[in-house]
Design a protein around this nucleic acid. Sequence first.
DNA 1: CTGTCAATTGACACAGTGTCAAGTAATAAA
DNA 2: TTTATTACTTGACACTGTGTCAATTGACAG
Lengths: 203, 203
Amino acid sequence: MVLDTMSSDNPETRERILKAAWRLLEKSQGRGVRMTDIAKRAGITRQALYLHFSTRAELLIATTHYIDEVRGSDERLAPSRSAQTGTERLDAFITAWGTYIPEIYGMAKALIAMSDTDDAAAKAWGQRMEDMREGCEAAIRALNSDNMLSSTYSPDQATDILWTLLAVRNWEQLTITCGWSQEKYIETVKSLARGAFVIENVS
Amino acid sequence: MVLDTMSSDNPETRERILKAAWRLLEKSQGRGVRMTDIAKRAGITRQALYLHFSTRAELLIATTHYIDEVRGSDERLAPSRSAQTGTERLDAFITAWGTYIPEIYGMAKALIAMSDTDDAAAKAWGQRMEDMREGCEAAIRALNSDNMLSSTYSPDQATDILWTLLAVRNWEQLTITCGWSQEKYIETVKSLARGAFVIENVS
DNA sequence: CTGTCAATTGACACAGTGTCAAGTAATAAA
DNA sequence: TTTATTACTTGACACTGTGTCAATTGACAG
């Protein structure tokens, strides 16, 4: 009888690695994190990493899933989905995503950097952005259903713009480079989006 | 008497290298261009590159200056500077910069990618972005002088937003990823900027 | 004919990723 | 007690790309 106290492909170690990667990526804002560093922090050798993840890209991608799971990226979207009006939904989505960015920033930076050379990384990050785009699309669609979408842009175009506005790079530039607070960032993006997409209430 | 047909630190070769780098960077959109490739295209050996540029970062930076020179990046700003009204200046600046981006995109991508690891590259790209920011600032200031700057944002804040809006990454996302035409990109950015910064003309 | 200068050739150091083979320590099963 | 299995270690090595160095070549100039 096998009472696997330490079952095949040890999940404890795997999680220790993911935690280590996450920690290091956030601490260094995604720059200069080597396999060696992650291994050291996880308390194993560099080679042992490859018993769990076959490439650096795979480890990075697994880290994103781990963060999503721990941080509950899905539940964050609940307020957005249950919003009554299109405007509320837009606001809620911007808040949800805008609040999530700083939590994944290090990992995102590393994955984006890898995307330049590694196809798997590019595909994984592209998929995540595609997922995020659906949130943008849903918000714009809600606005459109309320007949509140400005005629300046088509729904597709508005989705593209909102999607671009919410890019990690823009968050990075405004908060890190320009020194904005997180609150100011969120408020400004909301104000920009509202100004661009929501029909003025002329009283 | 030395009639230097081939003066010290041969400028012909230097230029051939810069042209080769430029060509390759644009062709491959800044990805995967190695010193070997540039040397080959310039018709010299990889090692000979180092007789002209001491590092890859230095070569990339020199390439940006070369492009600026050939493409006359300065003259492009003339219409912006001579604009009569703030709104015109804003439009002219967006057109100038927005038209310039596709010409430097490959090089910009490569330099941004290097910035993750190389401090010299980061500094050089940061400087270019700082220069561009001055154009944003001037446009916003012109708007403010005309009393046409919306009270929603302070001049500093408006500058930060315009600067972010005009980032290369946003151009990349809208044109390359979303498939927008260059014209649509320019028009949309103009419309977004006008909507965000220019006071409505209530008649 | 001699010096200079750009460029070549071939070698090597270094960092980081990924691979492989042999060994170890713990745990489980016969 | 012996035997297998599993997770991990150790040490070595291949590969890529950057950057360096020493010795050599070929051209041109005085």
